[in-house]
Design a protein around this nucleic acid. Structure first.
Lengths: 197, 197
DNA sequence: CGGGCTGGCTAGTCACTGTTAGCCTCGGAT
DNA sequence: ATCCGAGGCTAACAGTGACTAGCCAGCCCG
């Protein structure tokens, strides 16, 4: 069948990206060599260039697809209801779910931003700011609608976001908490932080 | 005076460490070269070895002194009262104050842990775990004494810590908030998180 | 059956970087 | 005046690592 060749190629490339992700998360982008990545997929370093144009490309691919995922999840969460408190709760749950389920992507996404080439980093940073603005806007609306009571919108928003980001550092699948449990509990914590009525 | 030579040496060394700190924070440990550090103190890279035994040494010095600072501040905060809620509040304030005032050290401390040599990393990680345990113990005691009401001690503790760590990422001296304001407000947020009575 | 693309391999290039070696200067103490 | 050590400099070494060049095997197509 004519799809076999193509199919195999596709799989390989995905394997490479997956291996790169694990290594970037574990050792960091700069400390990871193309040979390391090759070894992880049973190939010599230089062979990778038959599938990928550069090491930087791997990083870009990882960060972009990961960013696309969070943004999509966030939009779904916020769009699923009109109640600000529910929106914030669901947004936080999505945020945490992402940082737990895709902890490596999330981890690499925050840690390796600076090793993106200038153009890529700027684009990425902009999308990240948009994402954060989404949360700030929710908190602001909650306050305006008298549903939340916060000392500072900005600090509260940072707290919400940073709590969730932290999940990607300690979370491990199959330990004490499931993804859903963590998401749910962080949703509660978020409601406390904003003093939800 | 015989101290002049010594004094100058000491100052220089401190300058080197300061420059290294800034560069490590900005570009990352691996991406920073000895020439970079040298340039920052108007000296060629190799000359640094008259003051420092290795690049790794610079990282170790930064991380150790920084860790010593947090641990000391934490001990003072917890020792300054007997009331669990006050203890936790002050511990969080100290935590946040540290991450704001010493944001570069804090930032490097969390980001570059993996580039410490094995022995140093293990020692550092252990002290970090102790520090975290200090918070968990406070939350546990608060719950036991019926002063706090939390869904999960572990998750709540992580949240408290990660919120504070996040401060080192966005905080800038002389902008909207002073160190004290941030510390105070995060203390409030912490009280909300633990559902302090 | 045979040609050629796909994708692997080895060898090599080039740039870089931590660190050492060895030299020279200058300021302070004798 | 002179000595000397602290500390700067350049040159060089050794290792690394991204990426390229060029070769070859095997599989799919005709």
């Amino acid at each position: 069948m004519s799809t076999a060749g193509l199919a195999r190629t596709r799989v390989r490339r995905a394997d490479i990206v997956a291996a790169a992700l694990e290594l970037f998360a574990d050792k960091g982008y700069l400390a990871t060599t193309m040979d390391d990545i090759g070894r992880a997929v049973n190939v010599r370093g230089p062979s990778l260039y038959k599938h990928v144009t550069s090491k930087q490309d791997l990083l870009v691919e990882i960060m972009e697809s990961s960013m696309a995922t969070v943004l999509r999840d966030h939009a779904v969460a916020v769009g699923s209801t009109d109640d600000v408190a529910d929106q914030l709760r669901r947004a936080v749950e999505a945020h945490v779910r992402f940082h737990a389920r895709h902890r490596l992507e999330a981890f690499v996404g925050t840690r390796e931003l600076r090793h993106l080439s200038d153009g890529n980093r700027a684009a990425m940073a902009a999308r990240r700011r948009d994402y954060e603005r989404g949360f700030r806007v929710l908190v602001e609306r909650g306050v305006a609608e008298d549903r939340f009571r916060v000392g500072s919108v900005r600090l509260t928003t940072y707290s919400l976001l940073d709590m969730g980001v932290g999940v990607s550092v300690w979370f491990r699948e199959g330990e004490e908490f499931s993804v859903d449990e963590v998401a749910y509990r962080y949703g509660d914590l978020a409601m406390r932080l904003v003093g939800a009525a």
